[in-house]
Design a protein around this nucleic acid. Structure first.
Length: 386
RNA sequence: GCCCGGGUGGCCGAGCGGUUAGGCGGCGGGCUGCAGACCCGCUCUACAGGGGUUCAAAUCCCCUCCCGGGCUCCA
């Protein structure tokens, strides 16, 4: 139990750091042993399970739907790599309760003697206890399809008699690293904590969103770099839109691009969470906003706001930019004033074509995180995000 | 060995019978004293290989190669 706490705590830390919201309920299997025993009893009563010497097995022959999720056929199901327990009626049957062999530490009392659950049933029990006998969405990695999820379906549907147990299964693809699967033996794994030392949470999120959840995704420098560039571009555009709002002329309205992007975004997300397409819509909007800014010498406030709000809202729908605020200098007012003086002096230098000095000022400011961009309407300052 | 997924342009990555995905990078142009940011254009015989089916295939069928997952007591 201590071990569980340790990893659970570490897991929560990582999830929080990644900006993943915590679920409302996070039940623990070991706290539901009695519920599992009840369910196993029910399955025996209904004739879907049988007891053999302290073990309880699910009788797959009583559940013709077995294999409907993975598409596995009965003939293939009875083939096996590991020799099955010969006392099973059928090699395809799976354990609901296992007898604890001598010296086995993790065990509980049950009507069938000391033992432990088959570890497929806890999910059904907890789902039914907290969510109901049938649920809309069940997630998990694709490696769980068989046998774990297949077994869940068999247990739950045989027990309740209601189909389907789950309407939509969301199976995520694997994460590889530099083209290879992560493994301890290859030593090429990366922890979330290490990744977060290198990239901020939003960059990692952007990286993951850039591929469909079902696809395998490869963690490598170049892909993370691309994610970072894409993220920065969105943020810079938001900064610019926000900044210009203050001096914009009144009037304007939400341009059609905003409505279109929103519609296409929703369409993409409704299509099995097609986040790459959804992101493309955000980028389209970002480009439209920038395009508007370059063609208008004096943009209109409502148009700017429409772009700003929509880009931010769509990004946040994907969990990006949750704590975004338009970038301000973060310097005290006095320092800002000094900076303004410095910039106006630099402008004067530029007018007098003393470019070596003005460029020197620009370079030195850049070294301390202040980027000066000379635009048609005068210098614009950008502050590097840490 | 068997069963499922996949292999898309220099790179990432959608699409899954006919319509521009998108991004990164590169090239050219605009704006600039320069740089950057941004905008516009180009990068268009891209769809692992070989056979089919079809008026039409990256998309359907068959074979081969490669990668990932699974094949029941890890969940």
């Amino acid at each position: 139990m201590e071990l569980v706490d340790k990893y659970m705590f570490s897991f929560f830390q990582d999830m929080d750091a990644l900006g993943i919201r915590r679920p409302n309920i996070q039940p623990r299997a070991s706290m539901h042993i009695l519920d599992m025993i009840e369910m196993i009893k029910g399955l025996i009563e209904k004739g879907h399970a049988y007891v053999v010497d302290g073990n309880v097995y699910f009788d797959v022959s009583t559940f013709p739907d077995y294999g409907k999720l993975s598409g596995i056929k009965y003939e293939d199901l009875i083939k096996h790599r590991i020799e099955p327990d010969p006392r099973k009626r059928n090699p395809a049957d799976f354990a609901l309760w296992k007898k604890a062999e001598r010296g086995y530490l993790l065990k509980w009392n049950s009507p069938w003697g000391e033992g432990f659950p088959g570890w497929h049933i806890e999910c059904c029990v907890m789902v039914m206890k907290y969510l109901g006998e049938q649920i809309d969405i069940h997630g998990g990695g694709q490696e769980l399809i068989l046998p774990h999820h297949e077994n869940e379906i068999a247990q739950a549907e045989a027990y309740t008699g209601k189909k389907p147990f789950v309407k939509y299964w969301l199976h995520t693809g694997f994460l590889t690293i530099n083209g290879e699967k992560m493994s301890k033996s290859l030593g090429n794994f990366i922890s979330i904590k290490d990744a977060l030392k290198k990239y901020e949470a939003d960059v990692i999120r952007m990286f993951i969103l850039s591929a469909h959840y079902r696809s395998q995704i490869d963690y490598n420098e170049e892909s993370l770099r691309q994610a970072e560039i894409n993220l920065t571009r969105i943020r810079e555009t938001l900064d610019k839109l926000h900044e210009l709002t203050e001096e914009a002329k009144p009037g304007g309205k939400s341009p059609p691009e905003v409505e279109n992007a929103r519609k296409s975004f929703i369409e993409a997300m409704e299509d099995d969470f097609n986040t790459p397409r959804a992101l493309a819509e955000i980028r389209r909007l970002v480009r439209a906003a920038n395009s508007y800014l370059t063609t208008q010498s004096r943009p209109e406030v409502e148009t700017l706001k429409a772009y700003y709000d929509e880009i931010l809202e769509l990004s946040r729908a994907l969990g990006l930019l949750q704590d975004y605020t338009p970038k301000k200098s973060g310097y005290p007012a006095d320092v800002s004033k000094i900076l303004d003086i410095l910039l106006s002096v630099r402008e004067e230098l530029r007018k007098r074509r003393l470019y070596d000095i003005s460029d020197d000022i620009r370079n030195k400011l850049e070294k301390i995180g202040i980027i000066v961009e000379d635009t048609a309407t005068g210098p614009r300052i950008r502050f590097l995000r840490e």
